[in-house]
C-alpha cells in the first residue's frame, strides 16, 4: 500500500535530517562573567559549531547589548581559533539603567557564520565611586547583521543539540491524540452498532495510542535529563501524563474483568469515551493552571510558534504525518491479529 511505504520513507527522512543536519553557530559561553562600569575588559567568547577564523578578524563585530537602544561595540577583535575569540570593550561609566547591576547580551556578527546571541551573558556592576559620564551606550548601534539562511537548526542555549528531540518527542503526542480520537470513534461506533469489528478496532487504536504515550514519556524523560537536569522532576505535565496513561491502563483492566466478552466490550467502550473526555483536561487544561518547566506552559499553547523555525518545520510536520501513518499501520496489524485470535477461538 502506498501510504505504508510513504510513512517509512518519511520517517527515514525525519531520522536522517533530524540527526544529521547541523546546528547554526552559536555562543556557548563567555569569560569573565561579570565586570564593573567604567572598566575596559577583554571578553573571551567561546563559539559552538563556529568557524571564526574563516574571515579576517576586522570583519567580525561583537556587541554588548542591554536593549535595542543601548549597546556598545567592541574595539579590537582577536580571533584565537575557530571557536575562541577575544573582544575588548570599554564599558561606559554609567549604566543604562539606574540599578546596582545590569545583565548584558553578547552578540557576535560574523560574515559567514551569521549573527549569534548569548542572552544575559555578562553582568555589569555599577561603580558608585566614579562620577564621570565617560562613554556612550549608543555610539555604534547594532546594524547590518548577517542573517544566514541555510538548512540548519537554530542554536539554543540550555537545550543545544537536544533540539533534535523535537522531531521525535512532540510527534508522539500528536500521534497519541490521533490514535485516541480514532479509538473513541470506534467505541462510539460500537455502541451504535455492536459488532466485534468495531470493538477490535477500538482496542487496536487504544493499544497503539498507549504505546505512543509511553514512547512520548520516555523521550520526554530523556530530554528532561539533559535540559532540566533530572529525568523526572514532578513537572505538572509529567505528572498529568502519567495519570493519563493510568486512565488508559485501567481500560485494559476493565476489559479483562468480565466473563462475557460482549459485556466487557460494551462497558469498555463506554469507559473509553469517558477516559477520552478526561484526557483533554489532563493533558491540555490542568498543566496550564500550574507553573511548569515545559516550553510555553502557564497560559500559552504548549508549543509556541516561536519554538520552530522554517528549517525545523520542514522536518517537524513530516514527522507528525509519518508517525501518525505508522501508528495507523500498527493499529491495523494489531486489529488483524485480534481478529485471527477471535477466529481461532471460534468467537467470530
Amino acid at each position: 500500500m502506498w501510504w505504508k511505504t510513504t510513512s517509512v520513507l518519511i520517517l527515514i527522512y525525519v531520522i536522517i535530517a533530524g540527526i544529521g543536519v547541523p546546528l547554526k553557530p552559536g555562543i556557548d559561553r563567555v569569560a569573565p562573567l561579570s565586570s564593573k562600569a567604567g572598566q575596559s575588559i577583554e571578553l573571551q567568547v567561546f563559539g559552538y559549531n563556529s568557524t571564526f577564523s574563516e574571515t579576517a578578524s576586522e570583519k567580525i563585530r561583537v556587541w554588548l547589548e542591554f536593549d535595542s537602544l543601548h549597546a556598545i561595540q567592541s574595539g579590537k577583535v582577536d580571533v584565537k581559533n575557530d571557536t575562541t575569540l577575544l573582544a575588548s570593550f570599554q564599558i561606559p561609566a554609567r549604566l543604562p539603567q539606574n540599578k546596582q547591576s545590569v545583565l548584558l547580551n553578547v552578540i557576535v556578527d560574523h560574515p559567514t557564520n551569521g549573527v549569534s546571541l548569548l542572552p544575559a551573558a555578562l553582568e555589569v556592576l555599577a561603580d558608585t565611586a566614579v562620577n564621570t559620564d565617560a562613554g556612550n551606550w549608543n555610539e555604534h548601534p547594532i546594524s547590518q547583521l548577517h542573517v544566514i539562511k541555510d538548512f540548519s537548526y537554530p542554536y539554543r542555549n540550555v537545550i543545544y543539540e537536544t533540539i533534535r528531540n523535537t522531531y521525535f518527542h512532540v510527534p508522539m503526542w500528536f500521534a497519541l491524540m490521533f490514535m485516541f480520537i480514532a479509538s473513541v470513534y470506534y467505541s462510539i461506533q460500537y455502541l451504535r452498532n455492536p459488532v466485534a469489528e468495531n470493538d477490535r478496532r477500538a482496542v487496536a487504536f487504544t493499544e497503539t495510542g498507549l504505546l505512543f504515550g509511553f514512547l512520548g514519556l520516555v523521550t520526554g524523560m530523556l530530554w528532561a535529563h539533559y535540559a532540566w537536569g533530572k529525568a523526572w522532576s514532578n513537572d505538572i505535565k509529567q505528572l498529568m501524563t502519567a495519570v493519563a496513561l493510568l486512565v488508559y491502563l485501567a481500560y485494559f483492566i476493565l476489559r479483562a474483568s468480565f466473563d462475557e466478552p460482549e459485556k466487557g466490550a460494551r462497558l469498555a467502550a463506554v469507559y473509553n469515551i469517558f477516559a477520552f473526555s478526561s484526557l483533554v483536561p489532563l493533558l491540555y487544561i490542568i498543566p496550564r493552571m500550574f507553573a511548569s518547566l515545559h516550553p510555553g506552559a502557564t497560559g500559552n499553547p504548549a508549543f509556541g510558534s516561536e519554538d520552530l523555525d522554517n528549517t525545523m518545520r520542514l522536518v517537524f510536520y513530516p514527522s507528525i504525518i509519518g508517525f501518525t501513518m505508522l501508528g495507523v499501520w500498527m493499529a491495523q496489524i494489531r486489529y488483524r491479529s485480534l481478529r485471527l485470535r477471535d477466529r481461532l477461538a471460534d468467537i467470530d
Binding site: F258, D259, S278
Partner: peptide
C-alpha cells in the same frame, strides 16, 4: 460500570481516581 464486573471494589478505585484528579486538584 464497576458493578457489572467481577471485583468491583478495586475497579472503582482504579477507574475513578485518575478521572477524579482534575476535580480534586
Amino acid at each position: 460500570i464497576a458493578a457489572k464486573a467481577n471485583n468491583s471494589a478495586t475497579l472503582v478505585a482504579i477507574l475513578s481516581f485518575p478521572v477524579i484528579l482534575p476535580i480534586l486538584l
